[in-house]
Computed example of a mutant assay.
Amino acid sequence: MAKALSRFTIERDGDEYVLHIEDEDGDTLELTASFEQLDLISESLEEHLAFDADDPDLLGDDEEEEEE
């Protein structure tokens, strides 16, 4: 079963980036990624967020209030 994301950070380390992904239990996954890989992740996030932005079921109460 998937765990909920608690925290996510990115730090630059020379020519690579280090991603820290922490779950709800406090367990952290550390990954390295290139600029190109982060760019692909960014593009994918933008596509999903743009598509999902029109779904009112995905908007939180705070986001709905900001739109009004």
Results as ranks from 00 to 15, higher is better:
residue 48 H to C: 08
residue 14 G to R: 08
residue 13 D to K: 13
residue 59 L to C: 08
residue 42 S to L: 12
residue 57 D to M: 11
residue 20 H to D: 08
residue 10 I to E: 00
residue 56 P to V: 04
residue 62 D to C: 04
residue 2 A to E: 14
residue 56 P to M: 03
residue 42 S to F: 11
residue 32 T to F: 10
residue 23 D to R: 04
residue 36 E to D: 11
residue 16 E to C: 02
residue 38 L to S: 00
residue 65 E to L: 12
residue 5 L to E: 08
residue 49 L to D: 09
residue 67 E to G: 06
residue 11 E to Y: 00
residue 64 E to T: 10
residue 49 L to Q: 07
residue 39 D to H: 07
residue 2 A to P: 15
residue 48 H to P: 01
residue 14 G to Q: 07
residue 66 E to I: 08
residue 11 E to I: 01
residue 7 R to K: 15
residue 40 L to M: 12
residue 68 E to V: 09
residue 21 I to Y: 03
residue 67 E to I: 15
residue 35 F to I: 05
residue 43 E to V: 06
residue 29 L to V: 14
residue 37 Q to K: 00
residue 32 T to V: 11
residue 56 P to F: 03
residue 31 L to G: 02
residue 52 D to A: 14
residue 9 T to M: 08
residue 54 D to Y: 03
residue 68 E to G: 10
residue 20 H to K: 09
residue 5 L to V: 13
residue 61 D to Y: 06
residue 37 Q to W: 00
residue 43 E to L: 13
residue 65 E to P: 01
residue 9 T to L: 05
residue 49 L to I: 10
residue 29 L to T: 15
residue 33 A to I: 00
residue 29 L to W: 07
residue 11 E to F: 00
residue 42 S to A: 12
residue 1 M to I: 10
residue 56 P to C: 05
residue 16 E to A: 10
residue 59 L to N: 05
residue 61 D to E: 15
residue 21 I to T: 11
residue 27 D to E: 15
residue 65 E to K: 08
residue 54 D to F: 04
residue 47 E to R: 12
residue 17 Y to C: 03
residue 47 E to F: 05
residue 20 H to V: 03
residue 11 E to A: 07
residue 47 E to I: 05
residue 41 I to N: 00
residue 36 E to S: 11
residue 44 S to Q: 12
residue 13 D to M: 14
residue 8 F to D: 00
residue 4 A to H: 07
residue 4 A to K: 13
residue 60 G to P: 01
residue 30 E to D: 08
residue 42 S to R: 12
residue 14 G to M: 10
residue 36 E to Q: 09
residue 27 D to N: 12
residue 28 T to F: 02
residue 51 F to A: 13
residue 51 F to I: 08
residue 34 S to N: 02
residue 52 D to W: 14
residue 56 P to S: 03
residue 4 A to W: 07
residue 8 F to R: 02
residue 15 D to C: 06
residue 34 S to R: 01
residue 34 S to K: 00
residue 48 H to V: 15
residue 19 L to S: 01
residue 38 L to E: 00
residue 63 E to A: 15
residue 45 L to K: 05
residue 47 E to Y: 11
residue 10 I to V: 15
residue 28 T to K: 06
residue 40 L to I: 06
residue 36 E to C: 04
residue 18 V to R: 02
residue 62 D to L: 13
residue 54 D to H: 05
residue 41 I to F: 10
residue 2 A to R: 14
residue 67 E to W: 10
residue 7 R to Y: 11
residue 44 S to D: 12
residue 42 S to E: 12
residue 42 S to C: 07
residue 12 R to Y: 03
residue 14 G to K: 09
residue 36 E to T: 02
residue 60 G to T: 15
residue 50 A to Q: 10
